[in-house]
């Protein structure tokens, strides 16, 4: 009986050990901080690797990390330490979407995911927008500008999401778009995205359970927009650039 108990304990400890989040430095996967190497496949490889190993943090330290769309996977958190800038590429065909919304960071059907730290996600909005307009004009891109404009973060059908602490700037599309997600926490984000007049700060639809804490949002048009189908929303100490408190209208 006691032996069985010990065995069970051991199994529990071991299984938790396996799930225990490990930290991985970006450089392990050859991800370059030089601002010119397009890191998309390497970052994706890192995320897939960490997710397959049971989850953990992919840590970026000070530097500029150029990338196209990367897809977050279950149990992976991207940590942007102070000075780390995830830079969206100006090459528009490097973006893919989740549920039809293109974004720099996308996730579809994942759980327990996050982005955190004191770093920056930089969308290079004006440059990307210019490229989109050119490609549409030439007839190569058969989408509307808003369909083609990548958000900074777009998550669809994900559960248990924590997005916390960092700075988001110069989105081409919206800054953060959430559809059909559950248990979402957005905290301490500093959003400054005025380069595209159409950009909205937060857009969400059919989200169940979202906490918004200590957000600062500066956009030209609406800072926050919901389609009215979301439930369980709480707002604490969120501000517009104008100094007004952010009020949520469902």
């Amino acid at each position: 009986m006691q032996k069985l108990f010990l065995k069970i304990c051991l199994i529990i400890v071991m299984s938790q050990g396996a799930l225990c989040a490990k930290d991985y430095n970006a450089s392990l996967f050859g991800i370059k901080s030089d601002g010119v190497t397009l890191n998309t496949p390497s970052i994706q490889k890192a995320i897939d690797f960490i997710s397959e190993k049971g989850g953990g943090k992919l840590k970026f330290y000070v530097g500029r990390y150029l990338t196209g769309s990367i897809q977050l996977k279950s149990n992976v958190t991207i940590e942007l330490n102070e000075g780390a800038v995830l830079v969206g590429t100006s090459s528009i065909y490097d973006y893919v979407g989740a549920n039809g919304i293109k974004a720099l960071i996308v996730a579809d059907g994942q759980q327990n995911i996050g982005v955190s730290g004191k770093g920056v996600i930089e969308g290079q909005g004006p440059t990307v927008l210019e490229q989109i307009a050119k490609q549409i004009q030439k007839g190569y891109l058969q989408e509307t500008i808003s369909q083609a404009s990548p958000a900074l973060i777009a998550l669809n059908n994900c559960t248990s999401i924590n997005i916390e602490g960092f700075n988001l700037q110069n989105a081409c599309g919206n800054v953060i778009a959430l559809t059909a997600c559950k248990q979402v926490r957005l905290a301490g984000l500093k959003i400054k995205s005025t380069t595209n007049k159409e950009t909205k700060g937060l857009v969400f639809s059919k989200v169940d359970g979202i906490k918004l804490e200590n957000l600062f949002i500066e956009t030209v048009v609406s800072e926050i927009k919901s389609d009215g189908l979301s439930t369980n929303i709480s707002l604490v100490n969120c501000q517009y650039a104008s100094g007004k408190s952010l009020i949520f209208k469902n």
Binding site: D34, G35, V36, G63, G165, N167, K190, F216
Partner: peptide, 13 residues
């Protein structure tokens, strides 16, 4: 801005 090893962007504001 735009340099390969840009000075580190600090946590704002």
């Amino acid at each position: 801005a735009g340099r390969e090893y840009e000075g580190p962007v600090e946590d704002l504001p």
